[in-house]
Amino acid sequence: MMEWLTPLIVPFIVLNAILGIVTYVTLLERKFAARMQSRVGPYRVGPHGLLQPIADAIKLMMKEDVVPTAADRPVYNLAPIVFLIPCMLIFATIPFAPGLGVADLNIGILFFLAVSAMEIVGLFMAGWGSNNKYALLSAMRAVNQVISYDLPFIFAALVPVLLAGSLRLSEIAVAQAGLWFVFYPVIGQLAFVAFIVSTVAAENRAPFDILEAESELVAGFRVEYSGMKFAIIQLGEYAHVVGASFLGALLFLGAWAGPGPEWLGPVWFLVKAMFVFLLVTWVRWSFVRIRVDQILALSWKALLPATLVLLIATAVVVVWRGTPGV
């Protein structure tokens, strides 16, 4: 009788769950980074700093919203929203458990990759609309980098697709019931490493964070943003990383598969996604940033040919075995 409500309620729940996860992922990263650097990390707000993300959010909401006089106002104001929407939309096709998801499209992974690449529009709008030279340089770098790294990202993500023989994310997850794709001999490990590297780069995380590059460009494309607009950009960025972590856990780590009753599935999925997220974070806090030309060289000269070869090799293996699946 309430059939018509379902398409409204499910996205609402998922969206809020994702917002909660994304908010607390910042705390996880800060605690993890603090441990790496032999610090304690946030500790004062709430027990063990557990309320820190909420305090941060309130602080950002209370901040004055400063718009530069010379900014291109419509572009400047629209940019955070344009940036946030694709970052949240990527969660639409992810099944968090069998049948638990907003839309299990038959081209789920294609949708994910296409929408995920859209974030660049918001980035460039922010960089251009701010009318700031640091932001402009950062936006130019962003376009360079995202175009360069989306291709290896896609190729690496297509390896599990070939192995599973489906573009539907739930079917890729089910195909790993016997063997997680990360354990698939040779191909699985190489694809996982390529996926992690290109995730770090495509999400603009250090050591590939040349668009933020606070030692040269101060804060890059978001240098002129403050208050809630800044918070929205941050939120979008973290949502994107978390989305890519979920994708990594789904493509390589068997999604919701794990010991225990079936209802633990989403929990296992979250744990695996956080594992991927911490891998990315670990890389972030260990390396110095590399230069823009070196980043591009790494992508076009090494990562792109490597993932392409890997993809072809996977195809050959699948054809040789005669059937997709493990």
């Binding site: 250090a206 972030r284 940033r289």
Partner: peptide, 20 residues
Amino acid sequence: CLDMGGALGGGATVFLYCIR
């Protein structure tokens, strides 16, 4: 290292070790 690695990256790790 902070200059090269960023306050939000690997440089900060080396920086905090050195300061310690």
